[in-house]
């Protein structure tokens, strides 16, 4: 379990850094890594590895949350602005202001 938690922690870190579109997968991998690390520590199994796995998993989860979780309404607001033409109006206004 300690080794598995370290692997999952590293996977979560890698996904957080390199594969932005899999942010939620990285966060879930990190969460499973935290669970396995805690269980390994409670059993006294390879405490050093388990602690390393715990730290990597926690950092991986935080990284994924920071970089890739966005508010549904923010995305929908932009979509709505595009659909309603508000974004076109804003673009036109900016173009007029710069010419």
């Amino acid at each position: 379990m300690a080794v598995a938690s370290l692997v999952l922690g590293i996977v979560s870190l890698v996904i957080g850094c390199i594969f932005p579109y899999l942010g939620i997968v990285g966060a879930v991998a990190g969460v499973v890594g935290i669970v396995l690390a805690v269980l390994a520590r409670k059993k006294g199994e390879k405490k050093g590895l388990a602690t390393a796995g715990l730290v990597c998993s926690i950092i991986g989860v935080i990284l994924c949350v920071v970089l890739y979780i966005a508010c549904a309404a923010a995305v929908a607001a932009v979509q709505g602005a595009v659909e309603s033409g508000a974004l076109d109006e804003l673009t036109e206004a900016l173009q007029n202001a710069t010419t």
Binding site: I24, A27, V28, V31, V32, I34, V35, V38, L39, R41, K42, L54, V61, V65, I69, A72
Partner: peptide, 23 residues
């Protein structure tokens, strides 16, 4: 603290999945 961390991790993990699913 270890039990709290485990419970919090499970809660956060399923919260992220649940929030995405409902979205």
């Amino acid at each position: 603290w270890e039990t709290l961390l485990l419970v919090a991790a499970c809660a956060i993990g399923l919260a992220l999945v649940g929030a995405r699913l409902l979205y």
